[in-house]
Amino acid sequence: MGLTGFFLITFLIVHCFINSMIFFNDGGETFNHWGHFMGSNLIVRTMELGLFAFLILHIVQGLILWAQNKAARPVRYAMNKAEKNSKWYSRSMGLLGTLILLFLILHLYHFWVPSRFGGMANVQVLETTTLGGYSNQEAHNLYLAMQQVFQNNLLVVIVYVLGVFSLFWHLLHGFQSAFQTFGINHKRYTPIIKGIGVIYTTVICLLFVLMPVSIYMNWIN
């Protein structure tokens, strides 16, 4: 869980960083440039396979963990004041993960599937000359895709916000948890690690929430 979790955490940094290019307010030019770079780069495409492998591994590990831990406590307490000894989100990692997974399916259907399997090519192909650097290649206008998904679509925006909300609590526990799993618990460094975890989680999730919200609200163009 820790190893795969770490990998997913690293992926989120890159993903969030590149998507944040939409906030440049340049009609998505910078974002599309980097989006194209990521989509057309063999190394990145290989890493994408790794990402899916790790995500699936993370989910499989999570399911095994869930099943084993449920079997270890077959009879539940009639009265359990768990809130006195632990955080609700620490106890709800499986539930939060499942919510993230449900969100991910919708998310992949929105962007990844059309971009990889052609649904996007018909409508949103950019001349790469306008992107600079890449000569005579076709690039998907992922920025336009974002606008089409979120503009005038309140329900989708709400689902995205809820998805990121689940991610927030999952990471709030997961970030520090992964260090403990690897045997790192230090009087001086652990409070710092926990602090970085809170900052990381807040920044990433805030940026991710802002993306659909600001497109819907027409804050960026």
């Binding site: 084993q68 406590r73 632990s86 620490s90 106890r91 526990h173 948890s177």
Partner: peptide, 11 residues
């Protein structure tokens, strides 16, 4: 022995 796995809940 059938004990569960730690998920760092810290209870």
């Amino acid at each position: 022995e059938g004990f569960g796995n730690c998920t760092n809940v810290y209870a």
